[in-house]
Amino acid sequence: MKIVITGSNGQLGSELQEVLKSHSDKDCAFLDRCKLPLDEPAKIGEVLANLQPDVIIHAAAYTAVDKAESEEALANTVNHLASAEIAKYSAANMVKLIAISTDYVFDGTSSQALKEDAAVDPINIYGLSKLHGEEAIQRIDPNAIIIRTSWVYSTYGNNFVKTMIRLMSEREEISVINDQVGSPTYAHDLANAIVSIIESKDWKAGIYHYSNEGEISWFDFASAIKEIKQLDCKINAIPTTAYPTPAKRPKFSLLDKSKIKQDYYLHVPEWRASLELMLSKLN
Protein backbone atom coordinates (compact mmCIF):
# COMPACT_ATOMS: atom_id res chain seq x y z
CA MET A 1 0.00 0.00 0.00
CA LYS A 2 1.41 3.36 -1.09
CA ILE A 3 0.46 6.24 1.20
CA VAL A 4 1.17 9.92 0.56
CA ILE A 5 1.14 12.18 3.62
CA THR A 6 1.05 15.95 3.16
CA GLY A 7 2.30 18.31 5.87
CA SER A 8 5.07 15.92 6.85
CA ASN A 9 6.79 18.41 9.17
CA GLY A 10 3.64 19.48 11.02
CA GLN A 11 2.50 18.05 14.34
CA LEU A 12 0.22 15.41 12.83
CA GLY A 13 2.57 14.67 9.93
CA SER A 14 5.44 14.09 12.37
CA GLU A 15 3.31 11.79 14.53
CA LEU A 16 2.21 9.87 11.42
CA GLN A 17 5.88 9.36 10.54
CA GLU A 18 6.42 7.91 14.02
CA VAL A 19 3.33 5.66 13.94
CA LEU A 20 3.90 4.39 10.39
CA LYS A 21 7.54 3.43 11.04
CA SER A 22 6.36 0.09 12.40
CA HIS A 23 4.12 -0.66 9.39
CA SER A 24 6.49 -2.37 6.96
CA ASP A 25 3.59 -3.24 4.64
CA LYS A 26 3.11 0.44 3.83
CA ASP A 27 5.26 2.44 1.42
CA CYS A 28 5.00 6.01 2.68
CA ALA A 29 5.91 9.27 0.95
CA PHE A 30 6.02 12.21 3.37
CA LEU A 31 5.66 15.52 1.56
CA ASP A 32 6.66 18.87 3.05
CA ARG A 33 5.84 22.26 1.51
CA CYS A 34 8.89 22.05 -0.79
CA LYS A 35 7.86 18.69 -2.28
CA LEU A 36 4.19 19.66 -2.48
CA PRO A 37 3.77 23.45 -2.83
CA LEU A 38 0.19 23.98 -1.66
CA ASP A 39 0.47 27.67 -2.51
CA GLU A 40 0.82 26.58 -6.16
CA PRO A 41 -2.21 24.31 -6.67
CA ALA A 42 -1.53 23.84 -10.40
CA LYS A 43 1.54 21.72 -9.54
CA ILE A 44 -0.26 19.34 -7.18
CA GLY A 45 -1.72 16.91 -9.73
CA GLU A 46 1.65 16.24 -11.34
CA VAL A 47 3.37 15.57 -7.99
CA LEU A 48 0.67 13.06 -6.99
CA ALA A 49 0.65 11.43 -10.45
CA ASN A 50 4.38 10.76 -10.14
CA LEU A 51 3.87 9.07 -6.75
CA GLN A 52 0.71 7.09 -7.66
CA PRO A 53 -0.59 6.60 -4.11
CA ASP A 54 -3.36 4.24 -2.98
CA VAL A 55 -4.15 6.53 -0.05
CA ILE A 56 -3.61 10.24 0.58
CA ILE A 57 -3.58 11.66 4.12
CA HIS A 58 -3.95 15.40 3.64
CA ALA A 59 -2.65 16.81 6.92
CA ALA A 60 -1.07 20.00 5.56
CA ALA A 61 -2.76 23.36 6.06
CA TYR A 62 -2.31 27.08 6.54
CA THR A 63 -2.81 27.23 10.32
CA ALA A 64 -1.69 30.74 11.32
CA VAL A 65 -5.16 31.70 12.60
CA ASP A 66 -4.47 35.36 13.40
CA LYS A 67 -2.22 35.94 10.38
CA ALA A 68 -4.97 34.59 8.10
CA GLU A 69 -7.03 37.69 8.85
CA SER A 70 -4.53 39.70 6.77
CA GLU A 71 -3.52 36.85 4.41
CA GLU A 72 -6.95 35.76 3.26
CA ALA A 73 -5.88 34.91 -0.30
CA LEU A 74 -3.00 32.70 0.83
CA ALA A 75 -5.14 30.91 3.45
CA ASN A 76 -7.80 30.27 0.79
CA THR A 77 -5.24 29.00 -1.72
CA VAL A 78 -3.66 26.53 0.70
CA ASN A 79 -6.74 25.37 2.62
CA HIS A 80 -9.34 25.50 -0.14
CA LEU A 81 -7.88 25.51 -3.67
CA ALA A 82 -5.04 23.06 -2.92
CA SER A 83 -7.47 20.70 -1.18
CA ALA A 84 -9.69 20.84 -4.26
CA GLU A 85 -6.76 19.81 -6.47
CA ILE A 86 -5.93 16.89 -4.19
CA ALA A 87 -9.58 15.80 -4.31
CA LYS A 88 -9.56 16.03 -8.12
CA TYR A 89 -6.64 13.62 -8.21
CA SER A 90 -8.12 11.20 -5.66
CA ALA A 91 -11.52 11.15 -7.40
CA ALA A 92 -10.07 10.66 -10.89
CA ASN A 93 -7.75 7.86 -9.79
CA MET A 94 -9.97 6.09 -7.22
CA VAL A 95 -7.51 6.94 -4.44
CA LYS A 96 -8.68 6.95 -0.82
CA LEU A 97 -8.44 10.44 0.67
CA ILE A 98 -8.44 11.38 4.34
CA ALA A 99 -8.35 15.16 4.85
CA ILE A 100 -7.95 16.93 8.19
CA SER A 101 -10.20 19.84 9.10
CA THR A 102 -10.98 21.87 12.20
CA ASP A 103 -13.48 22.82 14.90
CA TYR A 104 -13.09 26.40 13.62
CA VAL A 105 -15.77 25.70 10.98
CA PHE A 106 -18.26 26.27 13.85
CA ASP A 107 -19.27 29.60 15.38
CA GLY A 108 -18.85 28.47 19.00
CA THR A 109 -22.38 29.26 20.15
CA SER A 110 -23.44 25.65 20.83
CA SER A 111 -23.88 24.37 24.38
CA GLN A 112 -23.64 20.66 23.60
CA ALA A 113 -20.99 18.50 21.93
CA LEU A 114 -21.00 19.15 18.18
CA LYS A 115 -22.04 16.36 15.84
CA GLU A 116 -20.86 16.16 12.24
CA ASP A 117 -24.14 17.55 10.88
CA ALA A 118 -24.20 20.59 13.20
CA ALA A 119 -24.60 23.93 11.42
CA VAL A 120 -21.30 25.46 10.26
CA ASP A 121 -20.65 29.21 10.42
CA PRO A 122 -16.96 30.17 10.76
CA ILE A 123 -16.15 33.38 12.64
CA ASN A 124 -12.64 33.87 11.23
CA ILE A 125 -10.83 33.67 7.87
CA TYR A 126 -8.93 30.50 8.79
CA GLY A 127 -12.17 28.67 9.64
CA LEU A 128 -13.80 29.91 6.44
CA SER A 129 -10.88 28.71 4.30
CA LYS A 130 -11.04 25.27 5.94
CA LEU A 131 -14.81 25.09 5.43
CA HIS A 132 -14.40 25.95 1.74
CA GLY A 133 -11.80 23.17 1.56
CA GLU A 134 -14.24 20.70 3.14
CA GLU A 135 -16.99 21.69 0.71
CA ALA A 136 -14.69 21.34 -2.31
CA ILE A 137 -13.50 17.91 -1.21
CA GLN A 138 -17.05 16.64 -0.66
CA ARG A 139 -18.24 18.05 -3.99
CA ILE A 140 -15.31 16.71 -6.04
CA ASP A 141 -14.66 13.41 -4.23
CA PRO A 142 -17.75 12.15 -2.35
CA ASN A 143 -15.74 9.04 -1.36
CA ALA A 144 -13.33 11.10 0.78
CA ILE A 145 -13.17 11.09 4.57
CA ILE A 146 -12.82 14.42 6.39
CA ILE A 147 -11.78 14.44 10.05
CA ARG A 148 -12.37 17.60 12.06
CA THR A 149 -10.16 17.96 15.10
CA SER A 150 -9.41 20.59 17.76
CA TRP A 151 -6.69 22.02 20.02
CA VAL A 152 -3.94 19.84 18.53
CA TYR A 153 -0.67 19.37 20.42
CA SER A 154 2.34 17.05 20.15
CA THR A 155 5.94 16.57 21.19
CA TYR A 156 6.67 17.96 17.70
CA GLY A 157 6.29 21.57 16.58
CA ASN A 158 4.91 24.57 18.43
CA ASN A 159 1.72 24.26 20.44
CA PHE A 160 -0.14 25.34 23.57
CA VAL A 161 1.45 22.71 25.83
CA LYS A 162 5.02 23.70 24.98
CA THR A 163 4.18 27.40 25.21
CA MET A 164 2.66 26.95 28.68
CA ILE A 165 5.70 25.02 29.93
CA ARG A 166 8.00 27.77 28.65
CA LEU A 167 5.95 30.63 30.09
CA MET A 168 5.43 28.93 33.46
CA SER A 169 9.15 28.23 33.66
CA GLU A 170 10.02 31.87 32.91
CA ARG A 171 7.34 33.76 34.86
CA GLU A 172 5.85 33.82 38.32
CA GLU A 173 2.35 34.53 37.01
CA ILE A 174 0.46 34.06 33.73
CA SER A 175 -3.13 34.57 32.53
CA VAL A 176 -5.09 31.97 30.55
CA ILE A 177 -8.58 32.15 29.01
CA ASN A 178 -11.24 30.23 30.90
CA ASP A 179 -14.36 30.81 28.79
CA GLN A 180 -13.38 28.91 25.63
CA VAL A 181 -14.39 25.26 26.02
CA GLY A 182 -13.45 22.16 24.03
CA SER A 183 -11.12 19.19 24.23
CA PRO A 184 -7.47 18.91 23.25
CA THR A 185 -6.20 16.40 20.70
CA TYR A 186 -2.89 14.62 21.17
CA ALA A 187 -1.71 14.31 17.56
CA HIS A 188 -0.25 10.86 18.27
CA ASP A 189 -3.74 9.59 19.15
CA LEU A 190 -5.18 11.10 15.96
CA ALA A 191 -2.37 9.51 13.91
CA ASN A 192 -3.23 6.10 15.37
CA ALA A 193 -6.91 6.66 14.59
CA ILE A 194 -6.11 7.53 10.97
CA VAL A 195 -4.00 4.40 10.52
CA SER A 196 -6.82 2.32 12.02
CA ILE A 197 -9.24 3.77 9.47
CA ILE A 198 -6.87 3.00 6.59
CA GLU A 199 -6.50 -0.59 7.81
CA SER A 200 -10.24 -1.05 8.34
CA LYS A 201 -12.12 -3.32 5.92
CA ASP A 202 -14.90 -0.74 5.79
CA TRP A 203 -14.35 2.64 4.15
CA LYS A 204 -17.21 4.91 5.16
CA ALA A 205 -16.97 8.26 3.42
CA GLY A 206 -18.05 11.51 5.02
CA ILE A 207 -17.18 13.85 7.89
CA TYR A 208 -15.97 12.63 11.29
CA HIS A 209 -15.01 14.35 14.53
CA TYR A 210 -11.97 13.42 16.60
CA SER A 211 -10.45 14.87 19.76
CA ASN A 212 -9.59 13.36 23.10
CA GLU A 213 -12.43 12.66 25.55
CA GLY A 214 -13.45 15.25 28.14
CA GLU A 215 -14.58 18.87 28.30
CA ILE A 216 -12.20 21.58 29.53
CA SER A 217 -11.22 25.23 29.10
CA TRP A 218 -7.77 26.50 28.14
CA PHE A 219 -7.35 27.47 31.82
CA ASP A 220 -8.11 23.87 32.87
CA PHE A 221 -5.59 22.63 30.29
CA ALA A 222 -2.89 24.99 31.56
CA SER A 223 -3.62 24.03 35.17
CA ALA A 224 -3.18 20.33 34.35
CA ILE A 225 0.15 21.05 32.62
CA LYS A 226 1.30 22.97 35.70
CA GLU A 227 0.26 20.15 38.03
CA ILE A 228 1.79 17.31 36.00
CA LYS A 229 5.04 19.22 35.40
CA GLN A 230 5.09 20.45 39.04
CA LEU A 231 5.69 24.03 37.97
CA ASP A 232 5.57 26.90 40.42
CA CYS A 233 3.61 29.59 38.63
CA LYS A 234 0.32 31.30 39.45
CA ILE A 235 -2.30 30.97 36.67
CA ASN A 236 -5.01 33.62 36.50
CA ALA A 237 -8.28 32.75 34.76
CA ILE A 238 -9.37 35.51 32.37
CA PRO A 239 -12.25 35.98 29.90
CA THR A 240 -11.69 36.09 26.13
CA THR A 241 -12.44 39.84 26.22
CA ALA A 242 -9.28 40.39 28.28
CA TYR A 243 -7.08 38.87 25.56
CA PRO A 244 -8.12 40.33 22.18
CA THR A 245 -6.68 38.70 19.04
CA PRO A 246 -7.00 39.61 15.34
CA ALA A 247 -9.11 36.47 14.74
CA LYS A 248 -12.12 35.56 16.85
CA ARG A 249 -12.11 32.11 18.46
CA PRO A 250 -15.17 29.90 18.96
CA LYS A 251 -16.25 29.94 22.61
CA PHE A 252 -17.48 26.33 22.48
CA SER A 253 -15.97 23.69 20.19
CA LEU A 254 -16.40 20.38 21.98
CA LEU A 255 -16.65 17.65 19.32
CA ASP A 256 -18.94 14.63 19.58
CA LYS A 257 -16.90 11.52 18.75
CA SER A 258 -19.77 8.99 18.68
CA LYS A 259 -19.72 8.48 14.90
CA ILE A 260 -16.01 7.71 14.51
CA LYS A 261 -16.10 5.39 17.55
CA GLN A 262 -19.11 3.54 16.19
CA ASP A 263 -18.01 3.26 12.54
CA TYR A 264 -14.36 2.34 13.21
CA TYR A 265 -14.52 0.77 16.68
CA LEU A 266 -11.99 3.29 17.96
CA HIS A 267 -11.03 3.79 21.57
CA VAL A 268 -10.60 7.52 22.16
CA PRO A 269 -8.26 8.24 25.10
CA GLU A 270 -9.21 10.71 27.83
CA TRP A 271 -7.47 14.09 27.48
CA ARG A 272 -5.50 14.00 30.72
CA ALA A 273 -4.11 10.51 30.14
CA SER A 274 -2.87 11.60 26.71
CA LEU A 275 -1.38 14.80 28.12
CA GLU A 276 0.52 12.79 30.73
CA LEU A 277 1.82 10.45 28.02
CA MET A 278 2.95 13.35 25.83
CA LEU A 279 4.70 15.10 28.73
CA SER A 280 6.50 11.87 29.69
CA LYS A 281 7.80 11.65 26.09
CA LEU A 282 8.80 15.31 26.16
CA ASN A 283 10.98 14.63 29.20
Results as ranks from 00 to 15, higher is better:
Lys2Pro: 02
Asn9Met: 00
Gly10Phe: 04
Gly13Glu: 06
Gln17Cys: 11
Lys21Glu: 12
Asp27Ser: 12
Phe30Cys: 05
Lys35Gln: 15
Leu38Cys: 10
Asp39Gln: 10
Pro41Phe: 07
Gly45Cys: 05
Glu46Gln: 13
Leu48Thr: 00
Asn50Cys: 14
Ala59Asn: 03
Tyr62Ile: 11
Tyr62Thr: 08
Tyr62Gly: 10
Val65Gln: 00
Ser70Ile: 15
Ser70Met: 11
Ser70Gln: 12
Ser70Tyr: 06
Thr77Ala: 10
His80Trp: 06
Leu81Tyr: 10
Ser83Trp: 01
Glu85Arg: 09
Ala91His: 09
Met94Arg: 12
Met94Lys: 14
Thr102Cys: 00
Thr102Asp: 07
Asp103Glu: 13
Asp107Ile: 06
Gly108Asn: 00
Thr109Met: 10
Thr109Glu: 10
Ser111Asn: 14
Val120Pro: 02
Val120Tyr: 00
Val120Lys: 11
Val120Asp: 01
Asp121Trp: 05
Asp121Val: 03
Ile125Phe: 01
Ile137Pro: 06
Arg139Lys: 12
Ile140Asp: 00
Asn143Trp: 05
Ala144Lys: 07
Ile147Asn: 00
Arg148Gly: 06
Val152Arg: 02
Tyr153Gly: 03
Thr155Pro: 01
Asn158Thr: 13
Asn158Arg: 13
Asn159Tyr: 03
Phe160Ile: 06
Val161Tyr: 07
Ile165Pro: 05
Arg166Val: 04
Arg166Lys: 14
Ser169Trp: 07
Ser175Pro: 03
Val181Leu: 15
Pro184Gln: 02
Asp189Glu: 15
Leu190Pro: 08
Ala191Thr: 05
Asn192Gly: 14
Asn192Phe: 11
Ile198Asn: 05
Glu199Ile: 08
Glu199Ala: 14
Ile207Met: 11
Asn212Val: 13
Glu213Thr: 12
Glu215Pro: 08
Ile216Leu: 15
Phe219Asp: 04
Asp232Gly: 13
Cys233Val: 06
Ile238Cys: 13
Thr241His: 11
Pro244Val: 09
Thr245Lys: 15
Ala247Arg: 06
Pro250Lys: 05
Lys251Val: 01
Leu255Lys: 08
Lys257Ser: 13
His267Asp: 14
Val268Asn: 07
Val268Phe: 09
Pro269Asp: 15
Glu270Cys: 09
Trp271Glu: 09
Ser274Asp: 06
Leu275Met: 14
Leu277Gln: 14
Asn283Gln: 15
